[in-house]
């Protein structure tokens, strides 16, 4: 366990460093942030002074070295635009994104497991087939297009829900969340559904396949033969077994959800880290882009680790040392 943990940690650290380097150099190559930030009225001397003030006059390797040294001390640099620590900017926005991803995840799992169970228990019924065909549609609708259509239908035509933005927030343990206000929830529904659709399709397929497999197993047949009610068989035996693949995949997909929130946040003007990333790329705010990526990688690593732990809890046969890295 410990060895496994250390190996994972080392690998993760390596990934973080390599990635930070690549992105750092890559963004350096795009252009000069001063071109975007500076007042157009500034003359050439002033442009030069600004470049020096932001440390952009130093050779690339020196900027890189400074960045790495500071990063070891937990300082990922200051935003060129806001003059504030990049990490702080991201942490301020992170709750909005996590909130969106978590709600989407809950929607995906509940709807997906329910529909998948149904389709698995009655594979040849019209409903079962419709659910499966529907899941193909779910795989196929591009996220941004779905978002646009939802806005068009629910915000423009029916006028039931807001078209975008985040609603009222309340402070909970120092974190601002919109989960506990009616206005906040009404703003959350459309983006969360948009983000959830693909995962829902995924869960439907997993749950259906799992159900089909489990339903043929001896212990389920035995349980049925014992006269257990069909709902008890489903909820206790089948559900528990299909949750293993579902938990694994969903855990891994939480990371991708946070990443894909970039698209959803853009469509719905959701003030999370995805939108911050896009804005920072546009402004060549390199410290923020690099910090964002390091933060996301860090979250991915945490999630993978949590999934492995959870997996070993759900299925005692799996020992951590054997779990895929």
């Amino acid at each position: 366990m410990l060895v496994y943990f250390i190996r994972r940690l080392g690998q993760a650290a390596l990934v973080l460093v390599v990635m930070a380097l690549l992105v750092f150099v890559g963004i350096y190559a795009i252009g000069n942030p001063v071109d975007v930030l500076i007042s157009p009225e500034a003359d050439l001397a002033e442009q030069q002074a600004t470049i020096e003030r932001l440390g952009l006059d130093k050779p690339l390797w020196e900027q890189l070295w400074l960045f790495l040294v500071n990063a070891l001390g937990g300082d990922l640099g200051r935003s060129f635009v806001h003059g504030e620590p990049a990490l702080q900017l991201i942490l301020e926005r992170l709750p909005a994104t996590l909130e969106l991803a978590l709600v989407a995840l809950v929607i995906a799992v509940t709807a997906g497991v329910f529909l998948g169970l149904w389709a698995g228990l009655k594979p040849d019924s019209l409903t079962g087939r419709s659910i499966m065909t529907g899941s193909i549609l779910g795989f196929s609708l591009p996220n941004f297009w779905l978002g646009l259509m939802l806005i068009l239908v629910f915000a423009v035509s029916l006028q039931w829900l807001p078209a975008g933005g985040r609603g009222d927030t309340v402070s909970l343990l120092g974190i601002r969340t919109s989960l506990f206000t009616l206005d906040g929830l009404s703003h959350l529904i459309l983006p969360a559904v948009t983000l959830a659709l693909y995962k829902t399709s995924l869960v439907i397929r997993l749950a259906r396949a799992g159900t089909r497999e489990v339903a043929l197993q001896d212990y389920v047949k035995f349980a049925r033969a014992k006269g257990l009610s069909s709902s008890r068989v489903i909820y206790v035996h089948v559900l528990k077994n299909i949750m293993i693949p579902v938990v694994t995949v969903i855990g891994l997909e939480l990371g991708s959800m946070i990443a894909f929130a970039v698209v959803t946040e853009t469509v719905f003007a959701w003030p999370g880290i995805g939108k911050l990333l896009i804005d920072s790329i546009v402004n060549l705010d390199r410290p923020v882009v690099v910090a964002y990526l390091m933060m996301t990688v860090f979250i991915f690593i945490l999630i993978n680790f949590a999934v492995d732990l959870l997996y070993s809890l759900l299925d005692p046969r799996v020992r951590l040392s054997e779990a895929k890295a």
Binding site: I151, L152, A155, V156, Q159, P162, A163, V267, A269, V282
Partner: peptide, 19 residues
């Protein structure tokens, strides 16, 4: 970004009427 964010206005308009 401007391109599509700008677009939401119509939706918002409708929304405003609703609210």
């Amino acid at each position: 970004m401007k391109r599509y964010l700008a677009a939401l206005a119509g939706g918002a308009l409708a929304l405003g009427l609703a609210q």
